[in-house]
Design a protein around this nucleic acid. Structure first.
Length: 204
DNA sequence: CGTTGGATTGGCT
DNA sequence: GCCAATCCAACGC
């Protein structure tokens, strides 16, 4: 087993997204499916978003889509994009704030066969290495928007084994065209399960 | 109501 | 490296 199996509590998420994002590295994302399957992934890449940040969905204020992001911490914010993909975030900060951490990649640890079936490939590096891949591998979609990671029965984040700061790398975020001055993408250095997404060049 | 483009991925050149 | 896929939220008129 990889570290502690204890669940992260509300307090963990009730902090600024920029603190939570690197602290999520090495933690275990777990889903129990209705069929009783257990899916586990070790988080290796995250990105922080917040309200005063032009790259964030919450930047333009509360909307039906971003409602969950402004809600209490420790819930899942799932959004649909490019007409075909879902991505998942962990809501952070205080209730009313509008900040979250995008889960971008994980190392699959349990339930690989199930993930492979959902993803249409069995290459472990292609199962959860990318935000939409991760959501697809875990079977997370619209129905999970708002799910409680702290008290809910289906999804949780376990303590796992946090990654020491010396192994955390920081870059600009992937796929955004604004907010490039904010280097809020965090990943485990040299980890093979990090996504291939290449961040845009930071401003000089 | 019509338009625009997106916190991506996979397949093809 | 480039681009299509495919829906829909957000915004402007």
């Amino acid at each position: 087993m990889t570290g502690s199996a204890r669940r992260l509590g509300r307090g963990f998420f009730e902090r600024p997204s920029i603190q939570v994002a690197p602290d999520l590295l090495g933690r275990l994302l777990v889903r129990r499916t209705p069929e009783g399957l257990r899916l586990v992934g070790r988080i290796v890449e995250t990105e922080a978003y917040r309200e005063d940040d032009p790259a964030s969905h919450s930047y333009r204020g509360r909307t039906p889509r971003t409602e969950v992001m402004f809600g209490p911490p420790g819930h899942l914010y799932v959004y649909f994009t490019y007409g075909m993909h879902f991505c998942m975030n962990v809501v952070t900060g205080r209730d009313g704030e509008g900040s979250a951490v995008l889960l971008r990649a994980a190392e699959p640890l349990e339930g690989l066969q199930e993930m492979a079936a959902r993803r249409g490939t069995s290459d472990p590096r292609l199962l959860c290495s990318g935000p939409a891949r991760l959501a697809q591998a875990f079977g997370v979609g619209r129905a999970h928007n708002g799910a409680d990671l702290v008290d809910g029965s289906e999804l949780a984040v376990l303590e796992g084994r946090p990654v020491p700061p010396s192994s955390v790398e920081r870059t600009t975020r992937v796929g955004v065209r604004v907010g490039l001055d904010r280097r809020w993408r965090f990943l485990v250095r040299d980890d093979p399960y990090v996504s291939r997404g290449r961040p845009a060049a930071p401003p000089r």
